[in-house]
Nucleic acid binder design. Structure first.
Lengths: 187, 187
DNA sequence: CGACGTCGGAACGCAACCGTTTCGTCGTCA
DNA sequence: TGACGACGAAACGGTTGCGTTCCGACGTCG
C-alpha cells in the first residue's frame, strides 16, 4: 500500500517546482529532492512528468467554484470577481497558470486538461451567470454567449496575469463590475 | 565584421525555437542547428540565451503599432481590435507570447522587457484611444485609465491566448467593439 | 598578395536528468 | 514473528546541453 503522506508530499513538491522553475524545466529528480523522497516513490505512482501534472490539474478541476446567485447581474459579477481576483493573485496560481497555459500551446493533453478545468471552473460559473441574467431579461436573449464570457473573464485575467498589477485598488472591482454589466447589456 | 545574413538566420531560428519548444527548453545548440550555423557564430554575438531573447523582444518593441484616430471611440476600438486580433492569431505570436509571459514570472529582466514592449505597443495605443475619447467627452474625465485598458485589452487576449479559440466569427469584433464602448462609457 | 577575422564543424570536460536497478531499513498485517 | 512491500539512497549507462577551444576553409580589405 502506497503511503498517503508520501503521495501528498510529492503533490506539494510538484506545485512548488512548477511555480519555481515551470513545467519545462521541472525534473523528476527535482520533485523527489524537494519532497524529500526517493525517485522510486515518484515513479511508483506516475509514469512521467506529464501524467503527474495532468493528474494534478484534473484534481483541481474537480473541486469547482461556488456558483454565485444573488438575483442580480451586478451582484453575481461582483461575487465572481471577488473570488477569481483572490484566486488569481495567489502566488502559486499566478506562476503556475501562465506556465501551463504556455505549455498547452505545445502539448494537446495539457491543453485538453486545462480546457476542461476552465470549462468546469471559471467558464462554467460565468456561463451560469449569463444564463441567469438572460432568464431575468437583464441581457438580450440572443446575446453571444462566448463573447459574454470573454468580456467577463478577460479583463481580470489580463490585469492579474499579463500586466501583473500589484493589488486591485479600492474601487477597482466595483468599477469593473459596473463596466462589465454595461458591456453585457449592450450585447 | 560579422556577417549580417548569419545574424539574420540566427534571429529567425530563435523565433522558430521559441515557438517550437519555448524559452525554457530552448538551447543555443538547437538555435545554431536550426540556423545552420556554428555555435561560435551565436556566442560571438550574444553572451547567453537571455541576452538573445531580450534583444529580440526589445527590437520588436521599437516597431510600435499605428495609432488609430478615426474620430470616434467605436471606430478607434474597431481598428485596434482588427490589428491586435490579426497579430495575436499569428502562429508565432500565439506560441511565443504566452511562453515569454510565463517566463517573465520568474525572470525580472524578461518581465521588464515585456512590460516595456507592452507599454509602447498595445497599452500605448489603447491609452491614446482613451485619451482621445476623454477629450471628446465620450467617456468621463475621471474614468480609471488602468481599468479602461484592462477592459479594452483583456477580452481579446483571453479569447486568442487562453481559450485559444479558432477564428473570430463574423460579427465578433463588431459586437466586442460595441460592448467595450458601452463598458468604457459606464466608467 | 598577404594578413586578418569570420565561418562551420568537431571536440573538450563538466553538469544535470533520464528511467532502471539494487541495496538495506522499516512498518504493517496475518 | 515472519513475510511482504514501500521506503530512501545510491549507482547504473545514456543523452543533452553547457561554454570553450582548436581547426582548416573562405572572403575581404589594405
Amino acid at each position: 500500500m502506497l503511503r498517503e503522506d508520501v503521495t501528498e508530499a510529492i503533490r506539494a513538491a510538484v506545485f512548488g517546482e512548477l511555480a519555481a522553475v515551470g513545467y519545462a524545466r521541472m525534473s523528476i529528480e527535482g520533485i523527489a529532492r524537494r519532497a524529500g523522497v526517493g525517485k522510486t516513490a515518484v515513479y511508483r505512482r506516475w509514469r512521467s512528468k506529464l501524467h503527474l501534472v495532468l493528474d494534478l490539474v484534473s484534481a483541481i478541476a474537480v473541486q469547482g467554484l461556488p456558483a454565485p446567485d444573488t438575483g442580480t447581474l451586478e451582484g453575481d459579477l461582483r461575487l465572481l470577481y471577488e473570488v477569481t481576483s483572490r484566486a488569481l493573485r495567489h502566488p502559486v496560481a499566478s506562476q503556475v497558470v501562465p506556465d501551463l497555459q504556455a505549455e498547452a500551446a505545445r502539448n494537446p493533453e495539457i491543453a485538453e486538461a486545462l480546457q476542461k478545468a476552465l470549462r468546469e471552473g471559471q467558464a462554467g460559473v460565468a456561463n451560469g451567470i449569463v444564463e441567469a441574467a438572460r432568464a431575468r431579461g437583464e441581457i438580450r436573449a440572443d446575446a453571444d454567449g462566448e463573447l459574454a464570457l470573454d468580456l467577463m473573464s478577460g479583463p481580470l485575467y489580463w490585469r492579474a496575469v499579463v500586466i501583473r498589477g500589484p493589488k486591485p485598488p479600492k474601487g477597482y472591482l466595483e468599477s469593473l463590475t459596473r463596466a462589465t454589466a454595461a458591456a453585457l447589456r449592450a450585447l
